[in-house]
Amino acid sequence: MPSTAATTTDAFPVFKSGRIGVLLLNLGTPEATDYWSMRRYLKEFLSDKRVIETPRLLWWPILNLIILTKRPAAKGKDYDSIWNTDLNESPLKTTTRGQAEKLAQIISDASPEAGELITVDWAMRYGFPSVKDRLQALQDQGCDRILLVPLYPQYAAATSATACDKAFEALMQMRWQPTIRVSPPYYEDTVYIDALATSLRQSLAKLDFEPEKILASFHGVPKSYILKGDPYRSQCERTHALLCEAMNMPQDKLMLTFQSRFGNEEWLTPYTDMTVKGLAESGIKRLAIITPGFSADCLETIEEIAVENRDIFMEHGGEQFAAIPCLNDSPEGMDVITSVVRRELQGWVTF
C-alpha cells in the first residue's frame, strides 16, 4: 500500500511516496482550430529536431517565413472537419483520455489493491496536457516509480524517442527524480497483432462490399532517417507480415504503404496516395485502408485517409472505399495497452 514519509519536525516538508504512476504518451494536438492556436502547435511540432533534421540555418527561414504563415489556416480547416465539438477538442485528445480512464478501471477491476496503488495519467508530446505537468502531478500524488508508455507500436525517433526526450527533459529539472521505466515498441506483440486482425475482420464484416485490395498504411518518415539507423521501416514490415499471416492474406492483397509525407525529400515508399491512385487507374473498384501504426484515430486517419484518399480513389475510377478505424479505446485496443502495462509493471505490482 502507498506510504507517506515525513520528517520528525514540522520545519521540513512532507513527501508522499510508495505509489506507481503510468503515463500514456501520444503525439499532440492543437488546443483550437483558429490561426494562432494552429500556429503555436505547428511551431512546437516542426521545431523538434527529432521530427525535422534539416540544419536550423536552412530550416528556420522556411518554417517561420513560409510554413507558419500559410499552413496554420489550411490545417485549421482540416481540424475543423474532424473536431469534437461537444468537448471542444480533437479526437486524439478525446480517445487518449478515454484510454487512460479505461486502463485505470481495468486495473482496479482486476485487482482493487493494484487499483489503489497505481495512478494512470496521459500527456501529449506537443500541446497539452504537457509531459512535464503530468509527471509532476504523478510525483505530487506520491508516485516514486513511473512507467512511460509511448502509444506507438513501431519505434521511430520522431515519435517514441521525442516523447521520451520530453520526459527526460522534465526529469532533469526535478530534484527528486522518480524511478522511470519506458515500455518498448510492441510491433510484433501477439496481443497487438490479434487485436488488429480482430478489428479488421469485424470492420470488413460490417461492409456491404468485399475489398479487392486492403492497404496497411503506416505514417511515413524520410528515407534518410532509416539510413541513419532508425528501425521504423523494418518494424512496420514485421507488423505487416504478421497481420497478413493472422488474416491468411497474401501481401499483394493486404499491401504495405506509407502516408503523410511532407516536403521535397524522398520518404518511405510505396506512398499511400500514389498507391490508391494507381490501384483505381488499374481497375480496382473496391478498396479498404487500415492504419496499424496509429493507436488512436486522428487527423492523419480521419481526414487524410477517410477523406483525401477516398477522394483520390473515387476521382480515378474507384467505386467503394472504407477507412478502417484504429484500435482506439475499443476492447481490442484496451487489451493491447493493458497487456503492455501489465508486462512492464512486473516486479513493481501485479494485477
Rank of each mutant, 00 (worst) to 15 (best):
T338H: 14
K16H: 11
A322L: 00
K253T: 04
Q136C: 10
T190V: 13
A6S: 15
F294E: 03
K223H: 13
D329H: 11
T275K: 05
A167S: 14
Y232Q: 12
M255N: 04
A197E: 12
G333M: 04
D194C: 04
A157Q: 15
W122R: 00
V307K: 10
P211G: 06
Q136L: 07
P222N: 03
H316R: 10
G317V: 02
E210W: 05
R19A: 11
M274A: 15
I290F: 13
I106W: 00
P30V: 01
Y152T: 00
D208R: 10
C164T: 07
K253Y: 09
Y186G: 01
R50Q: 13
M247F: 09
G21N: 03
A197T: 10
Y152I: 01
P325Q: 09
P72N: 11
D121F: 01
D78Q: 15
K166S: 07
A322G: 03
D252W: 09
I214P: 00
T95K: 04
Q136G: 07
S17G: 10
R343W: 07
K277N: 10
M274H: 12
T54A: 14
V221M: 13
A241N: 10
N248V: 13
D230G: 14
I146R: 04
Y41H: 08
P91W: 06
W60K: 15
P55K: 12
Q320S: 15
A161C: 09
A167I: 00
M255R: 01
R261S: 15
E237W: 02
P292M: 12
P184H: 14
L138Q: 02
L148F: 09
W36F: 14
V340W: 04
